[in-house]
Amino acid sequence: MTTTDGTLSITVNGQHRRVTGGITIAELAAELGLVPEKVAVERNLEIVPRSTLAEVKVEDGDDFEIVTFVGGG
């Protein structure tokens, strides 16, 4: 679904988004206002190690889950 304007169609936490082609997951996190040290990222059901977030590029059609710790029992 790559469009002629070079943007990518992805899903983040169940919501559809468009992002610039060629960005890394760390850049995506920054664009969402998130601090990578405080979250964990799953891409297409696979964990993306935090150490590689700045290297792995977002691909068209990627499905991301980005989670953090919240209160719970």
Binding site: N13, L32, L34, K38, I66, V67, T68, F69, V70, G71
Partner: peptide, 30 residues
Amino acid sequence: TVAVRRVNVSDPNQPLLTDFIDPKRYTYLP
């Protein structure tokens, strides 16, 4: 104990549990 949930993408600046209960002081049990 703590739960694991999706980050709030629409309001990422909301306070986080880790800002109040320091994971360095307490052992977090997810």
